[in-house]
Write a protein that binds this DNA or RNA. Sequence first.
DNA 1: GTGAAAGCGCTAACAG
DNA 2: CTGTTAGCGCTTTCAC
Lengths: 355, 355
Amino acid sequence: MKKNRTSIKDIAKSLNVSVTTVSFVLNGKGKEKKISDAVIKKVIDYTDAINYKPNRVAQSLRTGESRILVFMVEDISNYFFAKLARIIEDIAYKKDYKVLFCSNENDDARSRDLINLFYDRRVDGFIIIPSSGIKNDIEQLMKKNIPVVLFDRYFPDLETHYVTIDNGRASYNATQHLISSGFKNIGFITTDAQQIQMLDRLKGYNKAIESNGFVSQVLEISFTHLKADKGKVPMRDFFKKHQDLDAIFFATNYLTQQGLEIIKETKHIDINEIGVVAFDDNDFFKIHTPSISAIAQPLQEIGEELMRIMLDILKNKKDTTTLEQVVLSTQFIERESSQAKKTAPNGDYSLSKKS
Amino acid sequence: MKKNRTSIKDIAKSLNVSVTTVSFVLNGKGKEKKISDAVIKKVIDYTDAINYKPNRVAQSLRTGESRILVFMVEDISNYFFAKLARIIEDIAYKKDYKVLFCSNENDDARSRDLINLFYDRRVDGFIIIPSSGIKNDIEQLMKKNIPVVLFDRYFPDLETHYVTIDNGRASYNATQHLISSGFKNIGFITTDAQQIQMLDRLKGYNKAIESNGFVSQVLEISFTHLKADKGKVPMRDFFKKHQDLDAIFFATNYLTQQGLEIIKETKHIDINEIGVVAFDDNDFFKIHTPSISAIAQPLQEIGEELMRIMLDILKNKKDTTTLEQVVLSTQFIERESSQAKKTAPNGDYSLSKKS
DNA sequence: GTGAAAGCGCTAACAG
DNA sequence: CTGTTAGCGCTTTCAC
């Protein structure tokens, strides 16, 4: 970029002091270094006047700090991640950190590339939603003493800082809620990703189903399908095969969206008759007809916790900070889609009339 | 960060060559500088073996290039911007550029802060959706010879590169479409922002309304309201005051969302009877009941054009590149909400029965 | 109280 | 063909 921006040397020259003096003053170490008030004032006034800004790149090179954090998610255009990105961005900027967002598409190779790339840039820390195969890379980062906080999921056998939610309980409660609304044949639609958060959600569902003596009906859509935007194919088959389903639980947000699209275009399913619950809330769920019940993650809180932990590690980098593993509670937002329906889907049991 | 990463000097020492040689080879200038194949191979093999990665910060300091671009939008958690961010990210990474995303909240002070901040970091270029009062700052950047491409809106009296869409025509066509579906009392809901894209949309609407001899019914919601999340108040009032409206045209995405929420909760409005058209598409519009007709911006194309122009400027930085001002076409996606309704809202005219 | 100078890791002009 | 060296702009130790 332009060479002609004024440097600390120019300032020193103009002011007839040394660069050291200027540097000390600029870094607020004037008093500490016993620089005279007069000189301090002179420097401050001058730099203010010419609106001098130190070259951050040079600072980074010298100090080894970039004040840049990386926030790596599956897909930044996903509602949930975008909202969270915004929250993290706001907190970071207040603390004079910049945030680089990137999408790993839940792909190991891409995740690895991105991590290396940013490592080369000497970013100060990583907030990562890890794809399943990068445990090793995360471990490497930590060994190199680079702050890492995981989110949404974690590796049970790796000692990392993380923030997550009570997936199992949330899932159990939502299923239980469907059951108490009178639904008996509840399908669970999830992905085949063997990641802790999805497994926990499945467990929660199964627990509720089993403890009520019902039959578990699970569809695991492969990630390969999902990525090729073919997630709808297996879902359509599933709905066709299991016409006796009276409710559906979508395990994550993009599944809900695709599922709702399919339901809308499928003749034998009436969205007003079938029970629906979604993991992850969305602004559009309350506008949907019927409005969609959802498990809402505490976005603000998640963002705050992630940044709190990150800033903490950054501050105490010398000491081994105690491991922070935070599990936050979700909130079930009951809307129309999960309430008891007026007509019994199968006609073979009675329903409490709520809706 | 860690000091113990191997540097180019270490490599030179280990290999008994000079740093220059290593640097040339690493930068692919081996052939050009006539370094022997044997040495080239030796260097490449060694650096591969130890997985050496140059320190990008030092590179930046030296070359004055950061290979970082900034993409500044109103709000990164907004569906439209998030989608676009994703597309730009993908293109940039392929060209070995990183992208910093940030939200300016359509606020001048914040925009200014962000621009300065990134300017200090020597980012290589800016893609900006400008808030209305930062014309000056954009001008400053350009004077400093920093690549800037504007998007979504621009300053008519400032010679900048930009990518935008045919707001006026899109708006005219959508209004015309409502009219040919039999709607006669079409409200237009927009913001009070005096930005070219919003003004053009308003103009398009007015032109269609007037040329059909109808009455223009416009609600301009102040940005102050919108920011305080109070946008719904004036909208509710508007709907109450204008109960004769038979259709509504929302001028931008968050207005649509808020509007749909209000319609859903307002007794005297039946979403199945009123005509609705939205500027900006959303995945949820096709799931909505009724599905919502929308003007879709060509996201992929916009992202590609923005990056094409940016990379172009970056390449030809010495020469004054010719001004690139691209206007892309939108696509009107006709869904249920804008089709003629079975029952005439006012009962005083007949409708063609389409739906 | 202040200044000189080393050096972070890299690039590239210049010298041989 | 390869090596020496001068910076890029900043921080910080050490000396005066």
